[in-house]
Nucleic acid binder design. Structure first.
Lengths: 257, 257
DNA sequence: CCCCTTCTGCGTATGAGATACGCTCAAAAG
DNA sequence: CTTTTGAGCGTATCTCATACGCAGAAGGGG
């Protein structure tokens, strides 16, 4: 249980820094095994299927055995959030910030899409796990040659991160709703809203409905979702570009006169 | 149970469109009462405190009585997501899109801040409840005089919405972490990261840490959080402004020559 | 005016699920 | 070989959501 450093338990666990036990039976499980099993379960059957007993069953152990390696289910979820991530993209040092961030954001999107449950878990503040930090570093590195202040860089990266999470969350909520009850679902949006919305009281919404934006097909179309994703991302990066232009009209990291 | 129209139950409930029962005892509860009680509870003790029995106790009824008015806890949560919202701001018809959206976004932020649990619930796709739709309409109206296509408007509004949710989620996760364990928390970020991050492998992160961005004080400072919020919002709106400028160099909604 | 239908409130029961506690025994240290 | 430490895990609690079915109220129809 004790760790070599005086780090909080959870952090030590994330970094695998617990000292090896000297005595006693060999552990037949490790926190890593448990985390992997939990991720497999979540991938296969969704986050709701991840219960301590299910995970234990997956590993052929009893429920309580897990608690020797993981303090609580919450801690397990934290571990999952780090372990599910692959290596961040390796951006050449001279990549310009815009293509770097674009690549990065799409990388995050791809990573999360492989684990749809990922976006359902709340972002627990700035990252602490090794993989999360590696990704964070990657994005910060893309911004390193810009004139942003450090806290602004962090803000931008967190903004992008919440953007990706938000979009994924949205589309998976949609997909889940559809999977659960295709019939009710197809009536849910376009049709139902048309019934409920009075175009006189809500003209803008009326126009949207008339344009068919909420039709089931267009909501579920993968391509449209991707296009929307890129549209929003472009807006955000355009905004950043404009900001950088005003701050550094010509050179990089020049102080204002 | 039956509704006047052929709307799905949940929607009918949201809009209060269930026909009044003819026979039987008068209901001593309404779905609205239940929703209100649940919201009070969530406000006072957090979302985790909202259990069917707690809500029932709040109302002086038994647990199962609630199920006469609400199909499931999920449905109750959906109702809460609509009922917790106040009226959207009333934007004059000639408000320009930018101030309109700024006002709107801050309105959403303020609304959510009054109910910190709000951002913890997943956005269940496009809105269906009356209040949610009113807010949605409000944002769309702000964009009505722009040259955006309808689906782009929706994308922008959803983008703003997820942005707000994401920011709130983040800062409340932070606040919760701090409230739970101030000591461990203050060591969590700056100090811990400094220990764990090798500045040679992660130079960009190293600079951020050195700048003190992750110091506990600055993370929890309300002002900083607000400034960050506005910073991100400005970027996004700047991007949108740029996009609109390229699409309509001079006039509004003019087709390209 | 009485009875029948329809609904309400609610007691009871079921089945998860998380997790505290403490026992037993293995294995390494001495 | 004995002592110490920690692994695996059985058992027991508690909290929840929710299915089911009963009893009695309130109108409606005769």
């Amino acid at each position: 249980m004790a760790d070599q450093t005086d780090l909080p338990d959870e952090v030590a666990l994330l970094w695998g820094l617990r000292e090896a036990p000297r005595k006693g039976p060999k552990p037949s499980l490790t926190a890593g095994d448990i985390t992997r099993a939990a991720i497999e379960l979540a991938d296969a059957e969704g986050l709701a299927a991840v219960s301590m007993s299910r995970v234990a069953a997956q590993l052929g152990n009893s429920t309580m055995a897990l608690y020797r390696h993981v303090k609580s289910k919450d801690e397990l979820l934290t571990l999952m959030l780090d372990a599910a991530l692959e290596e961040p993209p390796d951006l050449p040092g001279d990549t310009d910030w815009r293509s770097g961030l674009t690549l990065w954001t799409h990388g995050v999107l791809a990573a999360i899409k492989q684990h749809p449950w990922y976006a359902q878990l709340p972002l627990g503040g700035p990252p602490v796990g090794p993989q999360n930090l590696a990704w964070f570093e990657c994005a910060l590195a893309a911004l390193s040659r810009t004139a942003l202040e450090e806290h602004e860089k962090v803000g931008v990266v967190m903004g992008l991160l919440t953007y990706v999470h938000g979009q994924v969350r949205l589309s998976s909520a949609l997909a889940a709703g559809y999977a659960k009850n295709p019939d009710a679902f197809s009536r849910q949006y376009a049709a139902v809203l048309t019934r409920v919305v009075d175009p006189r009281r809500m003209p803008a919404l009326g126009k949207v409905l008339a344009a068919g934006v909420f039709d089931v097909d267009s909501l579920l179309e993968e391509q449209d979702a991707d296009a929307d994703f890129d549209f929003g991302l472009t807006l955000y990066l355009d905004g950043l570009a404009g900001f950088l232009a005003t701050r550094t009209p010509s050179t990089v990291s020049a102080p204002s006169p």
